[in-house]
């Protein structure tokens, strides 16, 4: 699934950009051509994953959604979103960052336990 990477050339130009341009963090995050170094990208994806875990945990618990199938759905949503962010939104060439595996497992276990914790907590407190 090799897509022509348009990220290489613009990333070079992005570096020559005068630093004066005061692009806010969010603009930089949404700009697909901004250059990412490995740690910054993985940290960003890490916190995105934790936010998804927290949100899904609270939502599943509040509704409530009951049954192990919803764990599978959470894992799919969480992994799908992170994949969409880095490969479609940020146009990242995964080879440069250690391949899909390394990127997708960043912060996975912490977000999974956070999701379970929130789901159980809200479910127990609100529905009993």
């Amino acid at each position: 699934m090799k897509k022509p990477r348009s990220n290489k050339a613009p990333a070079k130009q992005a570096q020559q950009q005068p630093n004066g341009t005061s692009d806010s963090k969010l603009a930089k995050f949404l700009d697909p051509n901004s250059s990412w170094d490995k740690d910054k990208l993985l940290d960003t994806l890490y916190w995105i994953r934790q936010a998804i875990g927290l949100f899904c945990g609270l939502l599943w618990g509040a509704i409530p959604l009951v049954g192990a199938i919803w764990i599978v759905l959470f894992v799919a949503i969480s992994t799908g979103t992170v994949y969409w962010v880095y490969s479609q939104r940020l146009n990242i060439d995964e080879e440069e960052f250690g391949g899909h595996g390394a990127i997708l497992q960043e912060g996975f276990f912490a977000s999974f336990t956070l999701f379970l914790l929130c789901w159980i907590l809200v479910y127990s407190l609100v529905h009993f």
């Binding site: 940290d43 890490y46 934790q50 875990g53 912060g107 276990f109 912490a110 977000s111 336990t113 956070l114 379970l116 914790l117 159980i120 127990s124």
Partner: peptide, 21 residues
């Protein structure tokens, strides 16, 4: 039914890892 051990396990992984990060 959920015992304290499981909840404590979930807490220590998610809270400590995120706090350290």
């Amino acid at each position: 039914d959920c015992s304290m051990v499981f909840l404590y396990f979930l807490c220590s992984i998610s809270i400590r890892t995120n706090l350290q990060k």
